[in-house]
């Protein structure tokens, strides 16, 4: 199997957010999404809400959902693992759509990774019965809208895993 050579540009995610009608991004920046963070901050149609710990993000999104807004959670898989109780109580149990964009730290196309954050990411999502999509490159961008539409139809959280193996968002 070859290494990932195609690029996933932060603008691809931003275009998808605009298409969906996202109003708020609730996030903790990580090393791979810094450029995306800066890009989002420049958009007057988007309100970026930094939180202090990932578990806050699902709860804050619930409050915004109740208020009639369209929030998206943007975190890394390590933070998602920390957020189990919040995902349960503030997303799965309540019946509102929620798109969660999750950086797939440790992801590799070779199938084997030494990073336990990656090893436990998909088993975690399966244990919580959360459906997920993988986005690796620009051509996969439409999966973000697809995931969002699924979350609206099911009134459940749906995850998009960002598996940008080498390039990152921080160029």
């Amino acid at each position: 199997m070859s290494d990932q050579s195609a690029i996933l540009r932060p603008e691809t995610l931003l275009d998808e957010f605009k298409k969906i009608g996202v109003t708020h991004i609730i996030t903790i920046p990580d090393s791979e999404t810094n450029y995306l963070y800066e890009l989002m901050e420049q958009q007057d149609w988007l309100d970026v809400i930094p939180v202090s710990r990932e578990g806050e993000s699902m709860a804050t999104a619930l409050g915004l959902n109740v208020a009639g807004k369209t929030p998206v959670v943007l975190i890394q898989n390590t933070g998602m693992l920390e957020s189990g109780d919040s995902i349960r109580g503030m997303a799965l149990d309540i019946g509102f759509p929620l798109l969660m964009i999750v950086g797939y730290r440790g992801w590799t196309r070779k199938g084997k990774t030494p990073d336990s954050a990656a090893i436990y990411t998909e088993p975690f999502l399966n244990a919580f019965r959360i459906n997920y999509y993988l986005v690796e490159q620009n051509e996969d961008g439409a999966r973000i809208s697809e995931a969002y539409e699924e979350s609206v139809a099911t009134k459940q959280p749906v995850v998009v895993l960002i598996g940008d193996e080498y390039h990152g968002f921080n160029r």
Partner: peptide
């Protein structure tokens, strides 16, 4: 009057989101 809590310590974050949205 609203109830948003159902995860340990997270009600405040939910009410914060509500305040931002309204």
């Amino acid at each position: 009057d609203i109830t948003l809590g159902s995860a340990m310590g997270q009600s405040t974050s939910a009410v914060f989101g509500l305040a931002l949205g309204l």
